[in-house]
């Protein structure tokens, strides 16, 4: 017999390469955090003096609070609306067999395969033609054009693995359409819906190219960061950057812990004799 070829050797090499690339992904973010504690008004390495004063300054700044509030409002609305639309969109994408489905699948994915800056600009023309003044509310709309397809895709993955006989069985056992949805469909699809929601929130929170053209007089955090970066250095850039990164990290961690708790509770119940 010839040796089976995912050899130990190649597995180790692949693992090492993966770790190298992961470091490549995380080093810039660590650099941002590092810079946020530097005392100097301009960045210089090695860092000579350490401070947390930029954090208190950033948090006290009223304009930063405005930014955070705007970004938060946009992301929250985008999440709620996108998940609602995408849930049914995903059923049409992956579940039901209907005439026109193949075409729908392709059209729905187009916005993902589309240059975002151009999408943002086109929306700007569209809003002005419709006589709508751009503000954070139009940004919600703009983000959704890009995020709804992504969430449809994420929920679809769950829908594909969903056995429709489960719904039929519940229906057969006397459940109404609404009871089938509540008892069977929603609980089984909830992991897909939750991950779709997380993606919607964080992608909206971090989006720059769409916000740039659709927020009008309002400004989101990424827009502000970009403006400051292009015009010159201020220590508030790494500070606000670190703050939003840790915000995202804490959010993800909380969701992860909540999910683990649910799993453990289920297992615990299953394990009790």
């Amino acid at each position: 017999m010839t040796g089976t070829f995912p050899t130990r050797h190649s597995t180790t090499l692949t693992a090492i390469w993966t770790i190298v690339v992961l470091l490549f992904l995380y080093i810039p973010m660590m650099a941002v955090v590092l810079a946020s504690f530097s005392k100097l008004r301009y960045f210089r390495f090695p860092i000579t003096g350490w401070t947390t004063e930029w954090y208190s300054k950033t948090l006290e700044s009223l304009s930063v609070r405005d930014l955070l509030w705007t970004s938060l409002s946009v992301a929250t609305l985008v999440t709620v609306l996108s998940v609602g639309l995408a849930f049914f969109g995903a059923l049409a994408f992956a579940r039901y067999d209907w005439t026109g489905r193949k075409l729908y699948q392709r059209l729905v994915l187009l916005p993902i395969f589309f240059p975002q800056a151009v999408l943002g600009l086109s929306l700007l023309l569209w809003f002005s033609a419709l006589g709508i003044t751009t503000s954070w509310k139009t940004a919600v709309f703009a983000h959704m054009i890009w995020i709804v397809p992504i969430v449809i895709l994420i929920i679809s993955i769950q829908v594909y693995s969903f056995d429709s006989a489960l719904e039929e069985a519940a229906f057969d056992l006397g459940a109404s359409r609404w009871q089938v949805m509540k008892e069977i469909t929603l609980p089984i699809m909830s992991p897909g819906i939750v991950s779709g929601g997380i993606f919607a929130f964080l992608l909206s929170w971090g989006n720059f190219p769409l916000s740039l053209f659709s927020t009008g007089a309002d400004q989101t955090v990424p827009e502000w960061l970009y403006a400051k970066m292009v015009s010159g250095y201020t220590p508030m850039v790494p500070t606000l950057g670190s703050l939003t990164m840790s915000g995202a990290a804490i959010l993800l961690l909380l969701i992860y812990l909540a999910w683990m708790a649910i799993v453990r509770r289920k297992r615990g119940r299953a394990g009790s004799q």
Binding site: M29, V32, L34, F45, F208, P238, G241, T244, A248
Partner: peptide, 17 residues
């Protein structure tokens, strides 16, 4: 996870480097 953090912040990290 990095996908979920604004591209601008991550690129800014490279600027610092």
């Amino acid at each position: 996870i990095p996908l979920l953090i604004s591209e601008n912040i991550r690129l800014f990290g490279w600027v610092l480097i």
